[in-house]
Amino acid sequence: MKIEAWIFGLTTIFLVLVSPAYWFITDAGTQCGQENCADWTGTSALVMTTLLCAMMTLYLGFHAKRMDARPEDRKDGEIADGAGELGFFPPYSWWPLWCAAALGVIVFAVAVLAWWLVIIGFVLGALAVPGWIYEYYRGEYAH
């Protein structure tokens, strides 16, 4: 995961340079005729993106030091070193669809201020989330 940490690190450095430049450029452009002309939305979005990239850099760098090097991280790694089982990949599932539908009902209800519909969305979510969590404890793919 070293290369991923480097990619996020370089992105963080770029954003550290761009964020104050963006703030200065939008704040210095006071020719719009208003007293406070800064674009706080874009500046805060860039600052939050900088912080998120820094967080990912620290996380990936921390774990890259603690785990064995993957074949793609080693300079002498061969393609054949990565052969074998890569992990468990679940088959198709309908539960994410129902979870998304329940969340969609809740968001729609909040948008149109239909609080009774929020309750229906939470009930649907209370049925869909456990179904998604426990789908491997019953049926064809039970553990």
Rank of each mutant, 00 (worst) to 15 (best):
M1R: 11
K2C: 01
I3F: 10
E4L: 14
E4P: 01
E4K: 10
L10S: 02
L10H: 02
T12N: 02
T12S: 14
L17H: 11
V18N: 07
S19I: 00
P20I: 08
A21L: 12
Y22L: 00
Y22Q: 00
W23T: 05
I25M: 11
I25P: 00
T26A: 03
Q31F: 12
G33M: 12
E35H: 05
N36D: 00
A38R: 14
A38W: 04
D39F: 02
W40P: 01
W40Q: 11
T41S: 08
L46G: 09
V47K: 06
V47F: 14
M48T: 11
T50E: 03
L52S: 14
L52E: 11
C53A: 15
A54L: 14
A54P: 01
M55F: 15
Y59N: 07
G61K: 03
M67D: 10
A69G: 07
A69K: 15
A69N: 13
R70V: 00
R70C: 00
E72F: 15
E72W: 15
K75S: 15
D76G: 02
D76H: 09
E78Q: 10
I79R: 07
A80N: 09
D81F: 04
G82V: 00
A83W: 12
A83I: 06
G84H: 08
E85K: 15
P90N: 05
P90D: 10
P96D: 09
L97Y: 12
C99S: 13
A102F: 02
A102L: 03
I106W: 08
V107Q: 10
V107S: 10
A109H: 09
V110W: 10
V118W: 03
V118C: 08
V118K: 04
I119H: 05
I120R: 07
F122A: 06
A126V: 07
L127P: 00
A128L: 02
V129Y: 09
G131I: 06
G131Q: 04
I133K: 06
Y134F: 15
E135V: 05
E135C: 03
Y136G: 02
G139Q: 04
G139A: 10
G139R: 05
E140F: 00
A142D: 05
H143Q: 07
H143I: 08
